[in-house]
Design a protein around this nucleic acid. Structure first.
Lengths: 246, 246
DNA sequence: TTTCATTTTGCACGATATTGCATGAAGCTG
DNA sequence: CAGCTTCATGCAATATCGTGCAAAATGAAA
């Protein structure tokens, strides 16, 4: 590994994860911590990152909010994201819904991932910048301010024209009889369209969403193919649905 | 093996592997490291690759993530952004192009700004999250990886249906006779559409862009209504164009 | 074919860069 | 304050670089 190449890698990792930890990097790259420290020192001297005790942070305020949100993201979300990242395989076309749970996926995706990601979340699309081999399709529309995703007729139309292998759907409720649901009518309608556009549908559900039903129904549970949770498989989950435990 | 042939081989390897290691190549091609080094030095002098300690790396802009460019937000960009932020007034509908210069606008906008922003840059859209009174219209399409903005027929179509009061356009060249230009053909076509959709067109130009012409022309200077620069008004600027000095 | 200028290549050698380790200072945590 | 981690510095070993120089290869002219 060339020195310059390694430093570029560090910057990519910083852009992806929002932070760098010197000791982790040394272990992962099989180098001494001194070398990593020297890299961080020099990159900081070039104004490419902000050196802090124990590692480095981006100095661009653009990445700051996301880093903060990730820190607030619970361990549960982290675990779900780590488990779900494996669902995205090279060559696939994947629809990714908005929400902080899906944002947490980013650090667990390999930097050389080669696939097509379709999303109506500008934050998720922007976070995909370091993944050079990923083809990003941005779905436009009027941003729904609560969740910061594009909605409306334009987005509906775009998703309805699409065929994808997998849809990572964000919901606020997974209920044995009600099915998948969310709090906003227009969002629910859009999620229904997204779900129908994909062959497989996966939901990442923190415990507070299991057995819960929100006001607007997206689809019956039969539309789901994979459920990722932190604990054991819910007893009421239909047998044909794959369950992943994080 | 002919010298020229060997150098072509090196470039192929570089494109395939993403890097070249001088010592490895010497062993593999049964040549001294000196010869490889000379090859790399000359190829670097021709601008075909980036020479680094131990070997070489590609210099394609794809390999320089925008995170790096963003970090180089110069004082000039800050000054331009501060001056240009006043162009966005309450109630307006504003088209905002991608690019780091426009990202720099964000800190200078009032948090209670009430207007409609139309953009094909997911990063800019995501950065508008704190502005609760701003209506954000996201233009979709396939993300052009160099500049991370949506492009293609979908984006063209969306912009062509739109009427806006102001367009903040990003360009790489402002030239007295050539006009506004940029480096990519598809981007140029899209920028032309964006410009035609707005009543007023403003360009924020750092000094390195003045008097410069890039490969693809967006429009004549007559299409411009406001030019923001850091220095004095360019003498060749047509009188009908407003000039703001930052 | 021979001659000669030019280019290419390999080697030597001093200079510079990179890396890991040791040591003591500085920072963090409870 | 005490224990631990992280950091900065100096140092030695190794790797890489640039330059000068001579041998070999190449190609054009005699």
């Amino acid at each position: 590994m060339l020195t310059t190449q390694r430093r570029s890698l560090l910057l990519e990792r910083l852009a992806r994860d929002g932070r760098l930890v010197a000791s982790d990097l040394a272990a992962e790259l099989a180098l001494s911590e001194d070398t990593i420290r020297r890299d961080l020192r020099d990159l900081a001297a070039e104004g490419r990152l902000l050196r802090v005790h124990g590692g480095a942070l981006p100095l661009s305020p653009t990445h700051q909010p996301m880093a903060q949100r990730r820190d607030m993201a619970s361990d549960e979300k982290q675990a779900l994201a780590r488990r779900a990242a494996g669902l995205i395989q090279p060559g696939m076309t994947v629809i990714v819904d908005g929400g902080t749970t899906h944002q947490a996926l980013i650090p667990f995706l390999p930097l050389d991932l080669s696939c097509t990601i379709v999303t109506h979340s500008p934050a998720f699309a922007a976070a995909l910048e370091p993944f050079r081999a990923v083809d990003v399709i941005l779905i436009g529309g009027r941003l729904f301010r609560h969740s910061m995703v594009a909605t409306g007729a334009v987005a509906q139309e775009a998703f309805s024209r699409l065929r994808a292998d997998l849809c990572l759907l964000g919901v606020t409720g997974v209920h044995p009889t009600v099915g998948l649901s969310t709090g906003d009518a227009e969002e629910a309608a859009l999620k229904t369209t997204m779900l129908r556009a994909a062959g497989e549908v996966a939901v990442l559900a923190t415990p507070d969403k299991l057995g819960v039903s929100s006001r607007w129904v997206i689809a019956q549970l039969t539309a789901l193919t994979t459920l990722v949770t932190v604990g054991a498989r819910p007893y009421w989950l239909p047998p044909h649905i794959t369950h992943l435990s994080a």
